[in-house]
């Protein structure tokens, strides 16, 4: 089985990344041959749709499973549509989480674990921005 792990760096000893669409790297492990391939995430610099692009890229690698700290809704939809199983891992190295998956210790994700744009920092690295939408959007009004 081929498993893609979202990771913070290349190699089997890298830490699993808490995010999917904008993780630094994907490490693909083939559990039959023990081959390890580290792939740069092509969507890292995308201004939008990073989850979609990276999920499509992972599907193209012919993997059967994905392990990531979290997966957003769009990426989840792509992985589900392609029949790729998704598992959550909160920490550990690539090698450790792959072993945990094989031992049946990882939780399968069926829905997104984080909201859209979870891993998308602004140019300042923050997650802020926007403004409140308060004020009540009542419809019982003239216009």
């Amino acid at each position: 089985m081929k498993i893609a792990v979202s990771s913070t760096a290349p190699g089997a000893e890298a830490q699993v990344s808490p995010i999917f669409g904008r993780c630094n790297c994907f490490v693909v492990v083939d559990t039959e041959t023990q081959a390890v391939a580290s792939l740069a995430n092509p969507a890292l610099g995308a201004s939008g749709g990073a989850g979609i692009q990276s999920a499509q890229y992972i599907v193209q690698q012919g993997v059967q499973a994905v392990i990531s700290g979290n997966v957003g809704p769009n990426a989840m939809q792509v992985l589900n549509a392609a029949g790729v199983d998704v598992y959550a891992a909160t920490g550990g190295t690539v090698a450790e989480v792959v072993a945990a998956l094989q031992a049946g210790q990882l939780e399968a994700l069926t829905g997104p674990s984080v909201a859209k744009d979870f891993g998308k920092g602004g140019p300042m690295g923050g997650m802020g921005g926007g403004r409140g939408m308060g004020g009540g959007m009542g419809r019982g009004r003239g216009l």
């Binding site: 969507a43 995308a46 939008g48 749709g49 990073a50 979609i52 692009q53 999920a55 499509q56 599907v59 769009n74 939809q77 792509v78 549509a81 392609a82």
Partner: peptide
């Protein structure tokens, strides 16, 4: 340019909001 489409081996998904 907006990553609004995922072309998968057996399906093509459009993400209208993007």
């Amino acid at each position: 340019q907006f990553n609004a489409i995922a072309a998968l081996p057996t399906q093509t998904l459009v993400f209208a909001e993007l």
